[in-house]
Design a protein around this nucleic acid. Structure first.
Lengths: 180, 180
DNA sequence: AAAATAATTAGACAGCGTTCAATTCGCGTC
DNA sequence: GACGCGAATTGAACGCTGTCTAATTATTTT
C-alpha cells in the first residue's frame, strides 16, 4: 500500500510478495474490504503514536506549544506516509456494512488525543465544549492537509499550508477563550 | 458516476448505456483518466453555478449573510450530489501527468467566487490577504464536509457539521478584521 | 459510381476480486 | 513407521475491468 497507493494496490500482488496464494489471503481476511480495513486501522495506530511522540519530544525547542505540535504532527505524518494516509480516506465500505467494532475503537484513539489537548488549553468555563470543538479542528486541519497533498494548494500558489492550518486552529481556540 | 460512485464506475458500463462500444469512448477521451477528468470538471462547473445561485436567491430570507450562503452551498451541493462530488477527490491523476490547461481553468472558477466574497467582507486594510485566506477557508469547509459525508462526524456523535464549519469560518474572518 | 476519409466495432490481452473443490501439511494415535 | 484426521493452502475458473488495434462500416468528397 505504501509503495503502490490505494488505486494500484491489489490483493494478488500482496499474496505474491508474501509468498502465499490469493486464496489464503481471502481465508484470513474474508474480503478485499476487510483487508484494507486492517491496513488502515494499523495506519491509524501509527498515526496516533506519531502524534504522541511529537508531543513528548523536543520539549526545549517549543517549550509548550502542544497545539502547534499536534497540527505539525498531523501534517508530517501525512506527508511522510502519503499513500497509506490517503488510503484511509480513499477507502469507503459498502453502504450498510458498518466498521467492525474493534477496529472502530482503535481508530478513535487519534481523536481522543486531540480532545485531551484541546481541553487542556481551554479555560474551565468553556472546557465542556472541548469534544465538539476538537472534532471541528481536526476537520479544519484535515481539509488543509488534503489540499496540501493533492496539489490543490500548489495549483493556487499557496506555499505554506501548515502555517495556514495552524493559524486557523489558533484563531478558533482563542475565540473559545484559550490564551495562546 | 452519480448512480454508481467512483469505485464502481466503469467505461464499459458507460459505453453500454449510451449505445456505443468501449472503443469509441477511448477514441474520444483517450484514457479512463481523461474521461473522469471530463466528468469531474463538469461537476466543478455545476458546483460553481450552485454557489452563485445560492448567493443570488432568497435575498429576503438571509438579507446579507453571503458567507453563510457560501458554506451552505458547499455543503448542500456535496450532500445532494454525493457521488459526483466525492469523485472529484477520489480521482488522482498519475504522478507527472498534469491537469489539461482548459480543465484547470474551469475548475478555478469555484475558488474565484470565494475569493471575491471574502474580499468583499474584509476591511480595506486586510483585503490583500483575501486570496490566501479564501483558500484556507475553503480547506476548512472542505474538511468539515468530508467528515460529514464519510461518517466520521456521525461516528463521534456530531450532529451539525454545517453549523460547525460556518462558525470556524466566521471566527477566522473576524480575526482578519471582518465585521459580521 | 468510385475513391477517400472518418467513425465504429469486436476481439484479444493482462489484470482484478472472489469462490471453491482439490490438494498438501502438521500432528496425535496406533 | 504408518495411518488418519483436521487445518491450512492452493490454483484454476468466473466475470469483471482498462487498454489497444486490425478490421469493418458510414459518411463525405470527387
Amino acid at each position: 500500500m505504501a509503495e503502490a497507493g490505494f488505486a494500484k494496490f491489489s490483493s494478488r500482488e500482496v499474496a505474491k510478495r508474501i509468498g502465499y496464494s490469493v486464496g489464503t489471503l481471502y481465508n484470513i481476511f474474508g474480503s478485499y474490504d476487510r483487508l484494507i480495513i486492517a491496513i488502515n486501522t494499523r495506519t491509524f495506530r501509527l498515526w496516533a503514536a506519531w502524534l504522541e511522540e511529537g508531543l513528548a519530544g523536543n520539549p526545549q525547542d517549543r517549550p509548550q506549544d502542544r497545539i502547534a505540535a499536534l497540527v505539525e504532527g498531523y501534517f508530517s505524518f501525512a506527508q511522510e506516509n502519503t499513500h497509506i494516509w490517503m488510503a484511509i480516506y480513499d477507502h469507503r465500505l459498502p453502504p450498510g456494512i458498518p466498521m467492525p467494532q474493534d477496529y472502530a475503537g482503535q481508530r478513535a484513539g487519534l481523536t481522543e488525543i486531540v480532545v485531551r489537548e484541546v481541553a487542556a488549553v481551554l479555560p474551565c468555563e468553556t472546557r465542556d465544549i472541548a469534544p465538539r470543538l476538537a472534532r471541528s479542528l481536526v476537520a479544519t486541519v484535515h481539509g488543509h492537509c488534503t489540499f496540501a497533498l493533492n496539489g490543490s494548494f500548489a495549483l493556487l500558489g499557496e506555499t505554506d499550508p501548515l502555517e495556514m492550518a495552524t493559524a486557523r486552529v489558533k484563531e478558533s481556540l482563542r475565540a473559545a477563550g484559550a490564551k495562546l
